[in-house]
Simulated scan of single mutants.
Amino acid sequence: MSKPGKQAIGQQILAAFRAAGAVEVAPDILLPAETLLDLYGEDIRARAYVTQDPIRGEVMLRPDFTVPVVQMHMENGAEPARYCYLGEVFRKQDHGDTQPAQPRDNEYLQAGFELFARDADADAEVFALFHGILAPLRLQATMGDMDLLMDAVRALPLSGARRAALLHHIWRPGRFSRLLDRFSAVAAPRIFEDPGAPWTGLRSPDEMQARIARLQADRAEPPLPAESVARLQRLFAVQAPAPQALAELRQLAGEIPDIADAVERLAASLSRLAARGIDLATIRFDASHGRHTMEYYDGMTFSFATPGRADWPPVATGGRYDALTAVLGQGRSIPAVGGVIRPGLVHELGGLS
């Protein structure tokens, strides 16, 4: 008997999502680029396929489903609401001038589930749903929590401008690390001589003067204490089975009191998973997990990966994205959590039955 194809597996996953109460939706394949650029900045251009439409302007081939589903819900959706979908997404995966020996797919199926609800159990509901669907594949489940990291950054003894810069780059570990190093050292002097020439450029003179004022004010910032950096790095490095990680985080909360509330929220979420019959010892907690996922995740994150296949992307990913609904809701917001599964990878692993 031949194993099911990608589409058949996608339909199987979709049926499980519908059985969990989700309504199927089908967002457009071509999306306005402006919204995605506003959310992610120009970095999205490195990953998305962008083209020009004579009427609609700049558009992108759908890089993921979450943004259009959130837009649809915030325009006219009631709450609570559950949505599911199945379709192609398009992302540039490989960079450089030559084709790698094992190129990753730049067009592939995603099956997804999104939950909009003011329910403390929402994180556990979504994680448990994905855990149950993928159980036959014996994948490694990993969780993270961006709340913890962002609360820790907000607690640093820095100016608002420096904290904002670190929060902006928290999903870019390399840039974040360089900023942290810079803020930990005495600021180098900056001299802005008046050349007497006319102001030129895309920015106005007022904008350039404001920028100069910010850079000059940055000189007066005291360096970040070494103990603050060490605590933050210890937090970011926490990796262990969930029960052990929780104990480590509670210990760290004694040194970083601002993360205590997030740690207890995580503890409550893990308790809800245990109440659903999930063995917490099988879940790996990685405090920096969310830094390597989509930038809109701002709470719990999760992934299910294939052991021994480090060259593969995760079979499933997801998380909480409350702030995204506020950005796209034009004044309205609602807590939201969701995730996606790659039917193609499930197919490579032999299917779900």
Score class of each variant (00 low, 15 high):
G331A: 10
E58C: 05
D123K: 08
R291P: 05
R231F: 01
M143F: 14
I256N: 02
A22R: 04
A128Y: 01
R104F: 12
R250M: 13
S333N: 10
A16Q: 14
D105A: 15
A226D: 14
A237I: 11
L148Q: 05
A152S: 12
L280I: 02
A275L: 13
P223Q: 05
S204C: 07
V315N: 05
A78I: 00
R45M: 06
A117N: 06
I55A: 13
Q216N: 10
E88S: 12
A81Y: 05
R56F: 12
L345I: 09
G174A: 13
F285R: 09
A165W: 00
L266C: 04
E107N: 03
A22I: 01
S271R: 15
M208Y: 04
P223E: 02
D279H: 04
L266N: 00
Q209G: 09
L352W: 09
S184Y: 09
I44L: 15
G112I: 05
V59Y: 01
V153T: 01
Q251N: 13
Y296I: 09
L14P: 00
I13M: 12
G254F: 04
M208F: 01
D28K: 02
G308P: 11
K6R: 14
R320P: 01
Q244D: 15
D53M: 07
I13F: 05
L235K: 11
I256F: 01
G174K: 12
F17Y: 07
V25M: 08
Y108I: 03
V59L: 15
F236W: 05
R214Q: 15
L148E: 05
L345V: 03
E114Y: 08
R182V: 08
I55P: 00
A20F: 07
D94W: 06
Q71D: 00
L167D: 13
F90R: 06
P173F: 12
I170A: 14
G331W: 11
R91I: 07
L149S: 03
S204W: 08
S204H: 12
I44G: 00
M150N: 13
A226N: 04
F302S: 08
G299S: 09
I341M: 12
D286K: 12
L14T: 00
P80F: 11
P257N: 01
L328N: 11
L86E: 02
A15L: 06
D194K: 13
L115S: 07
I133G: 03
P173Q: 10
L202P: 02
W312V: 02
A161Y: 10
I191Q: 13
T301P: 09
G308S: 06
R250T: 07
G132P: 00
I283C: 08
L270W: 10
F113E: 01
L109K: 07
R190M: 10
F113G: 07
P103I: 02
P100M: 08
Y297T: 07
I283K: 06
L166V: 10
L37V: 10
G201S: 11
I259G: 02
D97I: 04
P136G: 13
G351D: 03
G339S: 11
F127T: 02
R309S: 03
I44S: 03
P27E: 03
L134K: 03
G339T: 05
A253V: 03
D43M: 06
T282A: 15
A141G: 15
P198I: 05
T301C: 15
V340Y: 01
T325P: 05
A274S: 14
M146Q: 04
L249A: 07
L167R: 12
V23L: 13
R214V: 11
L149C: 08
R309T: 01
Y85Q: 12
